[in-house]
Each structure stands twice: as C-alpha cells, then as structure tokens.
Simulated assay, not measured.
Amino acid sequence: MSEPRLRADAADNRARIVEVAREVVAGSEELKLNAIAKRAGVGQGTLYRHFPTREALLAEVYRHDVEELVATAPALLAEHDPITALARWFERLADYARVKRGVLAAVEVGVWRDLTARSLGPIGEALTALLDAGRAAGVVRPDVDARDVILLVGYLGRLEEQEWDTRARHLLQVVLDGLRARP
C-alpha cells in the first residue's frame, strides 16, 4: 500500500526538514529536532507531524540517501563510459557513507539493523549494474562482484571525522584502481 500523497506545501516542508537533517548529520552536529525545525523554517508541530521521533527523521534521511545513491547508477551509465560512471558513483558513495555513519551512530541498534538490511539490496543492485557495464566494456575485472566492493568500502564507517576529507575519496580511488581490468 502506498503512502498518501501530501499537499505541495506539506511535501516541500517535509523535503526541507529532511535536507536540513541530512546537512546536520553530514556535518557531525548533534541532531536536535527543535533546531532542525527552525533551520528548515517550519514549526515544531509541522516537524513532529512528519517525524514523530528523532529515529523516524534519521531513518528518512538514510532512506532518502539510499534512493539517491541507487538512482544515480543508471543516470551515470547513460552519460559516461563504465569506469567513469563507477568513479562518479564512488564520489556519491563517499557522501552517502558519511551520512550513513552519522545516522547509524545516532539511532538504536534495532533501528540500525533494519536500515542496513533494507539498503544493501538496492545498493548491491545499483553497484552490480555498474560493474556489469564495466565488465561488458572490458574495463572492470571479471572476478569481482557487488558484495566484494561493499565489503571493501565498509571501512568508510571507521574513518575518524577529522580524516574524512583527506582519506574517504582517496581510499575509494584505491578501490576503483583495484577494480580496473588489467591488459
């Protein structure tokens, strides 16, 4: 069953709340609902109608990021050669991983397990499409699959905040170089 459609103003409010919360989580700030409402330009009642708990808001931030990450794979493949598409997807993956780390650090273990279980399927499918295109073009190694890459990039959650900007994209480049087919 699908969710009821929101009025345009309610949908805009919801989108602003999620975007502000994402910025806060990505910036490693503490997520305070009152501050989120104020920065999003909505009242506290509006925020709580959309997201009755902090965990509900964080789950929506995470779900939204997963959807965006997954949607970028076919768009990148339509615009770029497979290895460039994979490299650009990795750039987006670094942003996603930073938000994921912040969300998972802020929610209870039960919510964390549910969020990660739901995201791995779609992310694995998007990554498989990128890898398949690269293999078909002869630029990605034939012996790797999406699970291999997901395991390799799992380290992003272990980076310290102060080293994120210097290491995250560099390490993804190392992974990308390892995925390239050798002549």
Rank of each mutant, 00 (worst) to 15 (best):
Y96K: 09
G45T: 01
A78Q: 05
R182C: 03
D145R: 01
L156H: 06
V111S: 04
G41T: 02
Y62S: 03
L33S: 06
Q162V: 11
D145E: 14
V139C: 06
E19Q: 14
I150Y: 07
E19M: 14
L6P: 13
L77R: 00
R98N: 13
D145F: 08
R135P: 09
A85V: 00
E68N: 13
P122F: 12
A37H: 04
A136F: 04
E163D: 11
D145A: 07
L76E: 00
A73M: 05
L115F: 07
G124I: 12
A11D: 12
D165E: 14
T53L: 00
E23M: 11
G157H: 15
A11K: 12
V140M: 08
K38Y: 07
A75Q: 10
D177A: 09
A137N: 10
G102V: 02
L6M: 10
V109Y: 13
V42Y: 05
Y48G: 00
L127Y: 08
H50A: 14
V144A: 07
L151P: 01
L171S: 11
P52H: 08
R98H: 11
H50R: 05
D132F: 01
V175C: 04
W89F: 08
E67T: 10
E23H: 14
A56D: 07
L86A: 06
A87Y: 00
V140I: 14
R16G: 12
L47G: 06
K32E: 02
P183A: 08
V140R: 11
D95K: 02
D95N: 10
A126I: 05
